[in-house]
Design a protein around this nucleic acid. Sequence first.
DNA 1: GTCTATACAAAGATAGAC
DNA 2: GTCTATCTTTGTATAGAC
Lengths: 187, 187
Amino acid sequence: MNDRKTQIIKHSVELVKKYGYDSFSYADISKDFGITKATIHHHFPKKDDLGLEICYYIHENMLTAFDKILSENTPAKKKIQEYIALYANMIDEGDKICPIASLQAESNIISEKMKKEVCTIDDLENMFIEKLLHLGIQSKEFTITGNIKYEAILITSALKGALMYARIHGEENYEMISKQLLMRLNI
Amino acid sequence: MNDRKTQIIKHSVELVKKYGYDSFSYADISKDFGITKATIHHHFPKKDDLGLEICYYIHENMLTAFDKILSENTPAKKKIQEYIALYANMIDEGDKICPIASLQAESNIISEKMKKEVCTIDDLENMFIEKLLHLGIQSKEFTITGNIKYEAILITSALKGALMYARIHGEENYEMISKQLLMRLNI
DNA sequence: GTCTATACAAAGATAGAC
DNA sequence: GTCTATCTTTGTATAGAC
């Protein structure tokens, strides 16, 4: 619809991945697109308006990516590896981390509305992984010891942590850490 | 030792754990201690000076905690649990995460000097865990599949991620996630 | 939708007095 | 070591013209 509006949201997600929500400004977007700050305020009166749209965008993007992975006729192991590859792309883009990890780290800064959205996205991601784990168990690709729900949360949390580590210490670390994480599933 | 300067550093570490480095200000410290911003600038002319001292303080604190755990005549399993409890304390303090995770999330905001210090602290923590893993293997308390170095990095990264998750979703999650993480070591 | 202009507060920082 | 006072820059935000 509103091309410029979507353009700003997309770019803002990248800024969150690189600098965090509180540390990027309307001035940054202004420079990057060659428009004035006032124009951005026209589309998003308050920064929190933009912040919420950022969350919604991440949410929708995630749904699309997960639906694609689920729809493919592939074994659970392959689906999990595709999920892990989604994260890897963020480092390749240059100096970025998971936008949700970034917002989690700023949870005492963002509005209650944004916080709630972050929680919803977290739940979505964890339920997706839980689903993949159940798939793999059913197809006897692997077994899970302990609690499946928390195994899922462990996987998503560990990958977010791994991405932050790899951004500073070298992107090659992400692959090594994720490989080690999946070792318990014999993947 | 317990002079104003140290007092400011200690408090700043807590602010980093709660809000992040970029999102806390001299004005915050000023209010909390009832002193002016100028006084803080007297102790730390630039914010980066304070930032570095924050890193050094975290570094030293970590060394002390790790030395204590290593010096005790306890099995490796117990030592790992003590390490995990160190993290748990941060949530108990109220709404806080690992200060290093916070700085990692802001790695494109902080100075090169601070970034280097964060890396050093990361290495220190990972080597500590690696040591505990070797101890446990030697004493036949558990076995490790895969790469021990990356198992250590996985543990530290996962716990940082788990802490961020638990801050938003409820502190009880930290225990559940860490329990699931250690399941592979049969702890 | 985009601009200029402007307001207003906050953040980092400095000079100089006590 | 702490203060008052001041400065600069940046960030968020609004009003009104084109």
